[in-house]
Amino acid sequence: MKSFKHKDIIALRDLTKEEIELLIETAEGMREINSRDIKKVPTLRGKTIINLFYESSTRTRTSFEIAGKRLSADTVNITPSSSSATKGETLSDTALNLLAMKPDIIVMRHAVSGSHYYLAGKLPNCSIINAGDGAHEHPSQGLLDMLTMKDRFGRLDGLKVAIVGDITHSRVARSNIQGLTKMGSSIYLAGPPTMMPPGVERLGNVTVCGTMKEAIQDADVVMMLRIQQERQGKTLMPNTREYSRYFGLNPDNLKLAKPDAIVMHPGPINRGVEMSSYVVDGDQSRVLKQVENGVAVRMAMLYHVAGGELE
């Protein structure tokens, strides 16, 4: 029997193939709850979940909040403007103060890669779930992406997945690379050379392509990444129009992928930059399915850390 024994979920890199499978299978079971009239089960009754978001987020925070509530946990949201971080409190002090209020799970997004490991070490009796740390990982996004691919193809093994865009700044790409490699998929990356981190091949079963066409040729999945304008100066690309010409997905270059390929994007989408509206709203797009799967995946993550053994 598969089991899950982690206190925290910080990176898909830390999980085995079996543990990732268990999380995806659990999410498949959770989906039924989201289609009921009464969308609530009593599983995490009496547990307190703090959503601590140092970076802005709508989708992920709302999704984690709904996931917690559907499992009957009490959820509290702390956002940058309302947190004491703006008054100069350190992460460690904020965490210890929150801990004094006895939460069971802290879901955190933070701009510094690895901050969750630091926090998890400080808080032995509280589970930490990573909702995105710097350019490191975004495990819930990786899991919901894999669930969306599995929905379409029934498997992950042997899929060709193209990831196109700003790989350097993308924690979504890193979580997908870690997870998909373990599940037996092949990953093909494309993006401007200024947005392609050197040595990225060493993260997993990754091929770096010179052009976007090369990456999406015969792909089963085309995953487009957001241009993170907040994270870069103007130096990485001349302008969005030029970017769109070389690395934007449109109905024409999508024909290079397999006829039954699906298109994904972690959102929020810059329409007309990463993808044309024809593709976003087209039949092959799974963008809204990803969001729907996000709630089920986060329910699965909360369920397993709450029940997992504390070491």
Binding site: T26, G29, I33, V41, L44, L71, Y303, H304, G307
Partner: peptide, 23 residues
């Protein structure tokens, strides 16, 4: 019906149970 999410002993399972599908 899968009763995993309705158990009264969620904590303290050495092998944490997978959630089956209620249909």
């Amino acid at each position: 019906v899968d009763i995993t999410l309705y158990r009264d002993d969620i904590k303290g399972h050495s092998a944490h149970l997978p959630v089956g599908k209620t249909d």
